[in-house]
Simulated scan of single mutants.
Amino acid sequence: MANQISPLPLVVTMGEPAGVGADIILSSYRQAAKHRLPVFGVIGCAKALHHRAQLTGHSTVEVIPVTGASQIPDVFERGLPVLDLPLEHDPQAGVPSSHSASKVIEWVDTAVRLALASDVSGIVTGPIHKETLYQAGFRHEGHTDYLAHLAVKAGYPAEPVMMLSAGDFRTIPLSVHIPLSQVPSAVTHAAIVAQAQVIDRDLKRYFDIEQPRIAVAGLNPHAGENGTIGSEDRDIISPAIQELAQAGINAFGPVSADTLFHEEARQDYDAALCMYHDQALIPVKAIGFHEGVNTTLGLPFIRTSPDHGTALELAGTGGANPSSFIAAVMQAERMGGAEQVLRELVSSQVS
């Protein structure tokens, strides 16, 4: 069923129990052979997954509880392995409840613990419902910064950078979930340099790109036209790009965003560093809406996620499209394979 690069399995967190996380996991498992997916196990509630399988027409999928990550590969051929951390209340499809919040967080905590212990090759996170978590006292902006928090808490460095991708098209938003009115103040020399350094390092490490080409988008229309339409491009972005070039990083720009994303332009770079959320996400979703993947660079472990939310209105209907989740699993496998090759190369050079 599987074509596994790494000897270690991936783990998938179930995400919001009332959302489509369970649906797309079950659907993807049924298509594992077709897509040559790697071995993965779920961290979540086995009972809830079994119930959702009955509800969505995936009743042929056997949900098999396991007690450790080492059991996942042996079980995967027979059924869907689940590290069972059961919910206290049965979830209702489409109706999120704060009762489940502590378990949703525990599932993420467990995945990170396994990844940091090198018991799994990476993490694919199911969509969470942040409003429900906030009601239960969750104080982080979302998955990305919470994963970084857990890494730092465990004593590891973390410089989280959100990368969106559709196939080999990759964008990174410099600023993420902030009001548009706050974007100009978030566009700083230090932020541009720091994020570009992470992009350069991790595209080499995880994507086998020897010399990543990073296009840096302008903030203002026409990249500011040398200060006539805003000064940020001339006074902040350009000097940051110059510093990156002096450090040996192949970054160029600022490029007017309205000319950066057409097919011909995309051939000139491996990733586009954009200045704000929609500048980065709109082109990815326009080009590959159902295949989009959210990858967190700058962590001490591999983390990907489908690039969509909980889709509460589709939960339990059987109508959720698993393509983004499948792409996220395959991307995590690819990253793990590239990192393993790099480790072997370094090891051979040292010996």
Rank of each mutant, 00 (worst) to 15 (best):
142 G>F: 02
123 I>Q: 04
128 I>M: 13
132 T>P: 00
140 H>M: 06
132 T>V: 13
121 S>H: 07
142 G>N: 05
128 I>D: 08
119 D>Y: 12
140 H>E: 03
126 G>E: 10
139 R>L: 00
128 I>A: 02
128 I>T: 02
119 D>I: 05
127 P>K: 10
125 T>L: 03
136 A>S: 13
131 E>Y: 09
131 E>M: 11
129 H>Y: 15
144 T>Q: 05
146 Y>W: 07
131 E>T: 12
115 A>D: 01
123 I>N: 05
115 A>F: 03
141 E>D: 10
145 D>V: 06
132 T>M: 14
119 D>C: 14
121 S>A: 15
135 Q>M: 07
129 H>W: 10
125 T>Y: 01
118 S>W: 08
122 G>W: 06
118 S>M: 07
123 I>K: 06
120 V>H: 02
143 H>V: 01
125 T>K: 05
114 L>Y: 11
125 T>S: 11
142 G>I: 08
146 Y>D: 02
127 P>D: 03
141 E>T: 09
114 L>C: 08
141 E>G: 14
146 Y>C: 06
116 L>P: 02
114 L>G: 10
128 I>V: 10
124 V>N: 04
132 T>I: 11
126 G>Y: 12
134 Y>P: 00
125 T>G: 06
123 I>L: 14
120 V>Y: 07
142 G>P: 03
130 K>C: 01
118 S>P: 00
144 T>G: 03
115 A>Q: 08
126 G>C: 14
116 L>T: 06
138 F>V: 09
121 S>R: 14
139 R>A: 12
135 Q>E: 10
133 L>Q: 11
139 R>E: 12
134 Y>M: 14
121 S>V: 13
117 A>S: 15
125 T>Q: 02
132 T>C: 12
137 G>T: 08
138 F>C: 11
139 R>Q: 13
141 E>K: 12
135 Q>G: 00
115 A>N: 05
146 Y>N: 01
132 T>N: 10
128 I>C: 09
118 S>E: 14
136 A>H: 07
120 V>C: 07
123 I>T: 09
131 E>S: 14
118 S>D: 14
140 H>K: 01
126 G>P: 14
132 T>H: 00
115 A>W: 03
146 Y>I: 02
116 L>H: 06
126 G>L: 12
129 H>N: 13
128 I>E: 09
130 K>H: 07
122 G>P: 03
127 P>Y: 12
126 G>F: 13
128 I>P: 01
142 G>E: 04
140 H>R: 02
114 L>V: 07
116 L>M: 10
144 T>K: 04
133 L>N: 09
118 S>T: 12
117 A>E: 13
117 A>T: 11
128 I>L: 15
141 E>I: 04
122 G>F: 03
129 H>F: 12
120 V>S: 03
139 R>V: 00
118 S>A: 14
119 D>G: 15
118 S>Q: 15
114 L>W: 14
141 E>F: 00
142 G>M: 08
